[in-house]
Design a protein around this nucleic acid. Structure first.
Lengths: 340, 340
DNA sequence: TTATGTTCCGCAAAGCTTTGCGCAAAGCTT
DNA sequence: AAGCTTTGCGCAAAGCTTTGCGGAACATAA
């Protein structure tokens, strides 16, 4: 049993032919006689030969590797997006290296450096929460290296991206609250430097307007998306002289923090407060009452991001940044329908 | 701006010295004069040189890559274990390639083939649910390639592994039910081909014995760990003439399926039925009532698995399979304490 | 001046694969 | 039989890095 993987050289010396002959025989090159070809192929199969990706990479000057940076690894949202990326990547012969920025700007820069050192062919990135300037992408963009942002994006005129229709769904959702009987609709927002947070905030305002309301400053709380700030924001909202009768929270972390705080105070959902979560079906149906939720097509986001990436890799010519917008879905459950 | 990453050759030709001189200068080899060393290092820094991992891999005959196979990617349990692996791997200059077996035996074999073709240096694996024979690891074991199992393990006399104290925690948990007032303690078990399922089942029996009970066949249901079978098992238990007053479910999927079904039938937790979940804190505290849970040290499992892996890689001599057992923690919350 | 010793650097091979080109032998034509 | 084509294979370079060894240039000693 060979300790090391078998190479063309091994086959060549076993068969007393040259390495080039083996290489050609394996791809049925017409220069090689049928007899030799047969012998080579049969031995290659028997010994389970497969080309050394390192050597191929060196030769072709490509690593067939995509770097992926996400704010965290353990959330369903990101892990299922990664699954989507992985599937398309694998189908096209690519590997992915996954890094987590832990929502930190510094860590994000570090990840990029590391991935570039690993010679990834390009990057698929979801911005960290703390990322507020975008110059660290200069090097990548200038080198015309494939780059795709998803969910939290920036520099859209230069970089392709995949997003969901955040503005629109936030608007729908706000109107849904109104239709469900809510009249004081609060919003726990995220940092306005973050594209998704900004879009959802604007959608919220737009929805309010559609319902004939103007924004009430006291019903809008900005957070940094942490559980503790979200809890605090909820607490403040609930202690208002006239508390909200519905809360639209900007993402899943905030949604669940709000829900916990509402329950902790002994308030009833949706009777006292309607709630919508941005999360997946599993989590939405896990709790009582089941949560109306905005479901993102996470797997598809990943797939689209990978496809966008691959498209960039191909056309060496003129790269036109593209933006793919996927539709989220509002699934109405008990948490947002007030008893009549 | 160079389109391609800078190589030793680029620096060498810019400085009119040989490639070997550049290589040596970068590592402060005494053969190289201080002047040349200084020039080389300064240009290397300026041009942001970093060695090509492909070339290094080819030279050293190592890819610095660990293949990781998990049953699924989107569960907190596995994704946080992967985080742990990733951290230790990165610290030691290793990359990881993650594959999902989707709980399928066939897919697991396929993943192994693919990873071997990618020239991973070894594998860290959690067995798929459907894996019932273990011959597909022969090739890896015979080649003395580093291999570590975690959580769901096999061939322990040949392969190192990381597990939690399943038997013991299952026993404790059963006794905890008894102490909490339960007298008909049911168990929704998993396939007995799976090490963890078997261990927990045995721990359950042992705990019952400690409480002076013998096992009641009707209170034990075997499932394949899917949500649907778990729901069905719960339904059967609840429809017994004398239904259980506590349910110990073998894993998180089953735990939540059981909880949902119990609630669907309008039964109260813990008043009618006590429940313990095997899950993380986030999920345990998300629901009403908060669930007593068995918390696995997931991140540490990943770290330990990676460390075991690295230890194997080093000592080329005699490889002694090691088993690391980590302690799980039983965190008591409302779901298992019956009102007195 | 010659022999010996340093100092400082380059050559080349190895690791694996692909591919343009060259070359020998065999077959064919006239 | 001489010249041409075809067939079938090998050489070598390129992609990047490390490292043993050889060697030129200079310095020192006798």
């Amino acid at each position: 049993m060979t300790k090391h993987p078998v190479s063309l050289k091994d086959i060549a010396s076993a068969l007393q032919v040259s390495i080039s002959t083996v290489s050609r025989a394996l791809k049925n090159h017409p220069d090689i006689s049928p007899e030799v070809t047969a012998k080579v192929q049969s031995l290659a199969r028997e010994w389970n030969y497969s080309p050394n990706p390192l050597a191929m990479g060196l030769l072709r000057q490509q690593t067939k590797t995509i770097g992926v940076i996400v704010p965290d690894l353990v959330t369903y949202f990101y892990s299922s997006i990664i699954s989507g990326i992985e599937q398309v990547a694998k189908e096209n012969g690519y590997y992915i290296i996954i890094s987590s920025s832990n929502e930190s700007y510094e860590k994000e820069k570090e990840c990029i450096e590391n991935l570039l050192m690993s010679r990834v062919e390009g990057l698929i990135i979801c911005l960290a929460r703390d990322t507020v300037d975008y110059n660290h992408f200069d090097k990548i963009i200038n080198n015309e290296m494939p780059l795709v942002f998803f969910d939290r994006i920036c520099r859209t005129s230069e970089v392709s991206s995949v997003v969901t229709d955040n503005r629109e769904i936030a608007r729908e959702l706000t109107i849904h609250f109104y239709d469900g009987g809510a009249r004081r609709i609060a919003h726990i927002a995220g940092p306005q430097t973050l594209s998704i947070a900004k879009d959802r905030y604007e959608g919220y305002l737009s929805g309010l307007a559609d319902c004939g309301f103007s924004a009430d400053e006291s019903l809008i709380k900005f957070t940094n998306l942490t559980e503790s700030e979200a809890t605090e924001a909820t607490r403040q909202l609930l202690s208002l002289p006239k508390p909200p009768d519905a809360i639209f929270s900007v993402n899943d972390t905030v949604s669940f923090a709000a829900m916990k705080e509402i329950k902790r105070q002994g308030l009833r959902i949706p009777d006292d407060i309607s709630l919508v979560a941005i999360t997946d079906e599993f989590h939405a149906t896990l709790v009582d009452p089941q949560l109306t939720n905005v479901m993102h097509p996470t797997y598809e986001i990943g797939q689209e991001a990978a496809r966008l990436f691959l498209r960039q890799g191909k056309q060496g010519e003129k790269m036109v940044p593209m933006q793919v917008v996927l539709k989220s879905q509002l699934v109405v459950r008990a948490s947002s329908v007030k008893p009549t």
